[in-house]
Computed example of a mutant assay.
Amino acid sequence: MDATLHLAQEPDADALLGRSPLAALTGMLLDQQIPMEWAFKGPWTISQRLGADDLDAHEIAAYAPEAFAALLSQKPAVHRYPGSMAKRIQQLCQYLVEHYDGDPEAIWKDAGSGQELRKRLEELPGFGKQKAQIFLALLGKQLGVRPQGWREAAGAYGEAESFRSVADITGPASLAKVRAFKQEMKAAAKAAGSGKA
């Protein structure tokens, strides 16, 4: 993997996301209940606290859980819920070690189709259907991973020229469009909810 991503909106953190499959997966895992930039800066913060240039699934999987939770809890914390996210990251890394010899790229290297890749992503700890579809769209749109049928497997997130998720963010302008889309969705959901009352 060697791409330029703009998800953390910080050069060093984005450079790590673009070269490290595990960093990109970890950022996607962290992307819940906190601002996107905070989530995608997390992998870089973790690598710095580990004193490494990259993240290693074997190292994180074997790390003492209490110590890893403490690492994520240091100020500034990596996530709003650093303890539970530390556990999830370790579960993800343990799964990668067990099923892919610690190599996250193996998830998509030989995937025969978009559906197969989505299934593999959905099997990852902490990845449901939506997270798997968004990550699949990110792989296809920005990282050049395009097995047959990847757009269809990514659902609406795979649509060209859409601004629905992190898969569509390539800079400040697209970030603003994705934020606007998310606000529209929240407003529509709120309106639908109040209409039922």
Rank of each mutant, 00 (worst) to 15 (best):
F127K: 01
A189W: 08
S20F: 05
F40I: 03
Q142C: 04
S73A: 15
G158D: 01
H58I: 02
V178S: 08
Y63L: 12
R120C: 03
P82N: 06
Q148S: 13
F68C: 05
Q48T: 10
A180S: 11
G140D: 04
P11M: 09
E59M: 06
V178K: 04
G112N: 10
M85C: 03
S20E: 12
K109N: 13
P172G: 08
Y81G: 04
E161A: 13
I134R: 00
L5F: 14
G27A: 08
A160V: 05
G83H: 10
G51H: 09
S174C: 05
F68V: 04
S113P: 11
A192C: 03
H58Y: 10
D56E: 11
I89D: 04
G171L: 05
S84Y: 02
K41H: 13
E98N: 09
A24M: 14
D168R: 01
A160K: 15
A111S: 12
A167I: 04
G51M: 07
R80V: 10
Q32A: 06
R164L: 13
A176N: 07
A106D: 09
Q183F: 03
G158Y: 00
A64V: 05
L175I: 02
A61Q: 07
L138S: 11
S47L: 08
G171N: 09
L55G: 01
I134E: 00
A62I: 06
A24D: 05
G171V: 05
M36A: 15
E59Q: 11
E37D: 13
V145N: 01
Y100K: 02
P82S: 04
G171F: 07
G126F: 12
D53W: 02
A69H: 10
A153Y: 00
H6I: 02
E123K: 13
G42Y: 00
R164E: 04
A153M: 11
E98L: 12
L136F: 15
L25Q: 00
T170Y: 02
G27W: 00
A197Q: 13
Q91C: 06
